[in-house]
Design a protein around this nucleic acid. Structure first.
Lengths: 297, 297
DNA sequence: CGCTGTGATACTCGCCGGGTATCAGACGGT
DNA sequence: ACCGTCTGATACCCGGCGAGTATCACAGCG
């Protein structure tokens, strides 16, 4: 009976974000009256008031807030559909692998080497991300497959295959007293007065409170460590992005980190499947020279 | 630049499912020519061939298969958006709680009692499901919150709160020799020749191979046990739906089952939040009389 | 009490989605 | 081989709805 069209959802999202019909119309590239009508029609179609307009200001109702959130999700799904279909269409497209810059570097190198040696495999394009970007790229259809890390990344809704389990190390400024230690515990690392843990932005861009410096990228963080301003605890394999001024000390009781290869569920394209198989094949094969990962259970 | 409309996706899904333009058009309640045009336009908009039509038969291309899967997901998201918004709109709507019929019965009763005693809480409507239905209902916006069980249910993409951890029991026909035992192991229960494990349908409706009877509902299963045709291993709290002809024997090494309350992420409506809080408050409060659940670690 | 800025309304226009009629091939039966 | 049938594609027309322009109605503000 009723069918929300993506156009209507886009219109509503624009108004809900701008809280202003005129500006929203401008953003959408249409005039204001049709936009007003579209929203009104949407409201009566849903039988729900979405916006409180008191002749001068526009505010979202509870239902409006729900529709805003749901609309974004739905529009993302539609956009992802288009993207994935296009990508599936062009024949010799490269497979896009998203991975955190600097993490699991050895594993990635071996994976790429393995694929490069196999003439039958599709070419792989590597997309380097900051912190939690992989999940969004995978969900949005921008990437076909990703290397992710439990318990850091949100694996909800993906199929995964475990590639590696490893311990974590503390990355410290070389001149700091703790850097001389051969091993550390979480308790020792947690509250070092002169090396407060850095704060990452939340999804909305705001930062949690705390004494540590605010960071947005791994490079910033690396530099802050080199400057003796903070410390961090990361998986052993991420040592790859160490600076000369960094020292890595194993943290014996830190939670184990699991590296997984993840892909959208039921995206059993042959190319993805073969890449996953290749990755799984690397499991248990320790790297030739730098193979001092924490053994795991 | 390009925007798939839900109408186009619905059209494509219809054709992809019927693999026949005429029938698909009939199903959609339109004539065949506009449908052909719509699909053609969709193809050229995406720049991808979706269907191989060789003048006599229609077949999906690889890209078409991708779009079919993605379209269903996208259309579900849109439909869920509409449903959730409508539900958010009507003021004193009851909160819909989906739960497996017969499972966690005591917990549910206590939860409902608690909510009924609180005049401030929204009324709760219970929706009893078969096996894995909760996830779909929650995702589709038909339910606001659900009781689910790890590792059985698919919790991907939901926020959850653990309510209970318990052991499992084998449900056996009373007259079977094993029913006399005080405790059992998985090994003993796994391959009982005269009590083969029942087979549940897959998502596509087909059944896996095996010796056991095919079942679709819990009632069927319960009756089959009473008839001495099969056995099952279920969480201890599901003993609620035992028949007189059933005997429950603890399976000491069966995996622990976690009962969780789940809700769609960021669906922080006050009503849902208060129900979750009420449920979490029950945790650790053992039921008054029937409190012989397996303690857990 | 106008001026400004807001969203709503009235009206027109033109595109596009939909319908009907028809075509162009591909099979199948004889 | 040929015609009947069934398929999707094409040609053409129409009507509704989405979009634009002009204007209104009202709220703040000086």
């Amino acid at each position: 009976m009723d069918d929300l069209e993506t156009r209507e959802l886009r219109y509503f999202v624009a108004v809900a974000e701008e809280l202003h019909f005129g500006r929203a119309a401008g953003r959408l590239g249409i005039a204001q009256p049709p936009l007003s009508r579209a929203i009104r029609r949407l409201e009566q179609r849903l039988g729900v008031r979405l916006l409180d307009r008191d002749r001068r200001t526009v505010a979202l109702t509870d239902a409006g807030r729900v529709l805003l959130r749901e609309s974004r999700a739905a529009l993302d799904a539609v956009a992802a559909a288009a993207r994935r279909t296009r990508r599936a269409g062009d024949a010799k497209r490269p497979l896009v692998l998203a991975t955190k810059a600097g993490a699991s570097h050895e594993l990635l190198r071996r994976l790429l080497d393995g694929v490069a040696g196999d003439p039958g495999a599709a070419p792989v394009e590597v997309l380097l991300c900051e912190v939690g970007e992989q999940a969004g790229l995978l969900r949005g259809g921008h990437a076909d497959v990703a290397l992710m890390h439990r318990p850091f990344d949100d694996l909800a809704g993906f199929d995964t295959e475990v590639l590696d389990v490893e311990g974590q190390v503390a990355i410290l400024p070389a001149q700091h007293p703790l850097a001389a230690r051969g091993r550390l515990t979480m308790a020792e690392v947690q509250n070092v007065a002169d090396l407060p843990i850095a704060r990452w932005p939340r999804l909305d861009g705001s930062y949690p409170d705390g004494p540590g410096p605010e960071v947005r990228t791994q490079s910033q963080l690396a530099q802050l460590v080199a400057l003796g301003r903070t410390l961090l605890v990361i998986p052993a394999s991420s040592r790859a992005w160490q600076w000369p001024e960094h020292v890595a000390v194993p943290v014996v009781d830190a939670p184990q980190v699991t590296t997984v290869i993840a892909w959208p569920p039921s995206s059993r394209s042959p190319a993805v499947a073969s890449l996953v198989r290749a990755a799984a094949g690397l499991r248990g094969t320790p790297p030739a020279s730098t193979g001092d990962r924490t053994p795991s259970g």
